[in-house]
Simulated scan of single mutants.
Amino acid sequence: MTFSKLKSEILALVSHERLSIDERLLNICELLEANIEHYNWVGFYFKNGDKNELKLGPYVGEPTDHTIIPFGKGICGQVAVSNENFVVPDVAAQDNYIACSITVKAEIVVPIFVNGENIGQIDIDSNTSNPFTEADERFLEFVCEEVAKLLS
């Protein structure tokens, strides 16, 4: 499924008001993981209250021990501090990488902003080396903008 087709699916999922927010976020994860071949783990992390840490939200893929990530630690923790997208073509080349699975080769993390504040992020792991393009980045920014509307 193309990114443009997936955008309409995302809009439909976000607007499905009979489902809880977590159910809608999980449906987004499932949609992305099922339709984009190089998305092997898809999940959301959110700021954990007033703490300088992220807490795992809905996700699909292999279970992870990383349910809490301190700001600055790993790719997700770095995005919580930098407020910028982070594309990692080769996780083995990253000093500050938290390994979730030995099969993961690449990662992309895009922040979610509500009223100018970074409140969370979408995190995607791939078992393929260097799979993420600028098109992935723009598409995930769209997803995060729609999720932000849901959370605001």
Rank of each mutant, 00 (worst) to 15 (best):
L6I: 12
L6M: 14
L6P: 08
K7D: 00
E9F: 00
I10N: 04
L11R: 13
V14Q: 01
V14R: 00
H16S: 13
H16V: 00
H16N: 15
L19P: 00
I21G: 03
E23H: 02
R24D: 03
L25K: 12
L25I: 02
L25R: 08
N27C: 04
N27D: 12
I28H: 02
C29S: 09
E30A: 00
E33T: 09
A34L: 07
A34Q: 10
N35E: 01
E37M: 12
V42I: 07
V42A: 04
V42Q: 01
G43W: 04
G43N: 06
Y45C: 07
Y45D: 09
F46V: 00
K47E: 09
K47A: 15
G49K: 11
D50Y: 12
N52F: 13
E53D: 11
L54S: 09
P58Q: 14
Y59T: 05
T64V: 14
T67I: 15
I69C: 07
K73H: 10
V79M: 04
V79L: 07
A80I: 12
V81D: 01
S82E: 12
E84K: 15
N85E: 14
V87D: 13
V91I: 15
A92M: 11
A93F: 06
Q94K: 10
D95G: 04
C100P: 04
T103Q: 08
V104R: 00
K105I: 01
A106T: 02
I108A: 03
V109M: 06
V110N: 09
V110I: 15
E117N: 14
I119C: 10
G120K: 08
G120R: 07
G120P: 11
Q121K: 01
I122M: 06
S126D: 01
S126V: 01
N127E: 15
T128W: 03
N130Q: 10
P131F: 04
F132L: 11
F132I: 10
E134F: 13
E134W: 10
E134S: 15
D136T: 07
E137G: 05
L140S: 11
E141S: 12
E141P: 00
C144K: 10
C144R: 11
C144D: 00
E145V: 14
E146R: 13
V147F: 04
A148L: 04
K149C: 09
L150P: 08
L151I: 04
